[in-house]
Amino acid sequence: MAEARRSRRPTLVLAALTLLAIVAVAAFMTLGARGSWDFVIPFRGRRLLVLVTVAYAVAVSTVLFQTATANRILTPSIMGFDALFVLVRTLVVAFFGTGMLVAFDPHARFLLDVALMVGFSFALFRWLFAGEERSLHRLVLVGIVFGILFRSLSTFIQRLLDPNAFQVLQDTLFASFSGVDTTLLGISLVLVGAVSLVLWRIGHCFDILSLGRATAIGLGVDYRRSVMTILVAVSVLVAVSTALVGPITFFGLLVASLARALLGESRHRVLLPAAVLLAVVALVGGQTVLERVFAFDTALSIIVEFLGGLVFLILVIRGAVR
């Protein structure tokens, strides 16, 4: 009896979310379309693809980051990872000048950013997570301090730039959900695909890792290697989503926590798809509603951050940090 009840719930949740996601996508593509479909379909299709890629990258990176660090409250963005991306790009402009940004092929530039970011985060993760014992409270503190450090450093360096360089940098940094940058879509898809393939191959150890370090090692997981692989994959995914739409702090936490609450369990086989679908519904649906119903343009990130921030506070107050 209990067995039957348990096994049906995730299926129902996933089915409902899939339906919602399809409705959101259909609405995004068709609502308020005036003009020839030959124009509307490719134009909106590209934006849709960006939103879906971002949704996927944010959801997967958040869920797996929480798995690898065995916690439910830290996310890559709360640890300052998107801020790191901004810092990396700012540093590139500061040291190589805007010529680098303008003259360089955007794809090569993006790959350079990703490489730098993976390098940085690898060093940081090694230091933070590879040790034998670690305290979640120390991690939260370190993460928040790093986030602030990265943001302040970026702001500081940006102040030192000459106005022209600053302008160029701003242009490349501040994308948003409405004015998404589609030039990097192709390469982002390739990166996301490659990362997903790697993750798929080690996917069997995700559930074990969420049992914590001691149990995972006891069950024969190559802990260090699995965690490092996940964390590198996470930094690539964060780089992709930040490059496409800019930093969003609390969105990942929002979808990961909601997915867990809806499913009532945390097996990755259902958790990952649920989080991705939720992210798609939130981004694509939210964007459609804001654009077509309220005729706003830029407010989605604010609403997402507001809701995500609330979830963060609730998690802290309810003591999910143990």
Binding site: I208, L211, A214, S266
Partner: peptide
């Protein structure tokens, strides 16, 4: 190995947990 601080963040059924004991043999 069985340690005392089995605090975990995952939400699992008893059967799921016990089945993880097969992981070293079946690798998923």
């Amino acid at each position: 190995v069985l340690r005392q601080d089995n605090h975990m963040t995952a939400r699992l059924t008893v059967r799921d947990l016990v089945a993880f004991g097969r992981y070293p043999h079946s690798r998923g």
